[in-house]
């Protein structure tokens, strides 16, 4: 039986994430995938602004810390400078789907050969629980104290579905990490996304539905239950685009 040990894809730095937050699981999956694909030596990660801002201390590869929302542009520059590198971004929902929407959409439509790991937890975590572009209708946050009123604050945005319509996207899948079977599926998706980049297929994105017990005001177990009952109905899991056979060009 295989020994359970820390992946070499992560450094020894201690995560600053809150108890019950699923960032840690996703970090581990990304680290394991990079280790298994043997790409740590040529990986360049791009950290966002948000809870994962210090991802540059956790992934055991070269890292660049980007301005808020600009990770796909920074990753574009890095990939164009050295196409032999494996370039990925790790971004939250505010970073990717609000302030950085243009960068995300255009990197995707250019078929930029990079991999995006997108953490959707329906809230701004780092700044203390404000409405995110992905906050659900009726969801209470610090800036939607009466629940998100879609007539004033608009509707929650489905990024995987939206990006799947673009010709440059080789792979877009939404997964979650709230239980073991889903963790396994998430890892398979992340691996497929990196594999697509290795083979030069185009833009790949894995959206991971994640929990934020602290800002949701729930215990970790309750947070998992809330995600399953509220987020998955609005953000159905599954593969939204797969051009990994032929590639986008």
């Amino acid at each position: 039986m295989a020994e359970f040990k820390k992946t070499s894809g992560l450094t020894d730095a201690v995560f600053h994430y809150c108890p019950g937050c699923t960032h840690g699981i996703v970090h581990r999956l990304v680290g394991e995938v990079m280790e298994e694909l043997g790409i740590l030596g040529k990986a360049v990660g791009v950290a966002p602004v948000g809870c994962a801002v210090m991802a540059y201390d956790y992934f055991n590869c070269d890292m660049i810390q980007a301005p808020h929302g600009r990770a796909p542009a920074v990753a574009t520059g890095a990939k164009r400078a050295n196409p032999a590198n494996i370039v990925f971004t790790y971004q939250g929902d505010g970073d990717l789907a609000a302030i950085g929407t243009a960068e995300t959409v255009h990197a995707a439509t250019r078929g930029e050969n990079i991999t995006v790991i997108f953490i959707n937890n329906a809230i701004y975590g780092m700044t203390g629980g404000q409405m995110a572009p992905t906050t659900l209708a009726g969801q209470v946050t610090q800036t939607t104290p009466y629940g998100r009123d879609v007539t004033r604050a608009g509707f929650p945005i489905r990024m995987s579905e939206m990006l799947a319509t673009l010709d440059g996207v080789a792979y877009a899948e939404r997964v979650t990490v709230v239980d073991v079977p889903n963790v396994r599926k998430a890892k398979a998706a992340i691996k497929k996304a990196f594999q697509a980049q290795l083979e030069g297929k185009g833009f790949s994105i894995v959206e991971v539905l994640s929990t934020c017990p602290t800002n949701w005001g729930l215990a970790p177990v309750e947070a998992v239950k809330w995600l399953k009952e509220n987020m998955i109905p609005h953000y159905p899991l599954g593969c939204y685009q797969d051009r990994t056979e032929k590639g986008v060009f």
Binding site: A66, A73, A102
Partner: peptide
């Protein structure tokens, strides 16, 4: 590389990414 970015903001961040990689 010539890349017409989606915005000035994206262009300067592409520079950040490329220059970080030593070019």
């Amino acid at each position: 590389t010539f890349l017409q970015a989606e915005s000035e903001i994206a262009a300067i961040n592409m520079v950040l990414g490329a220059a970080s990689c030593g070019v």
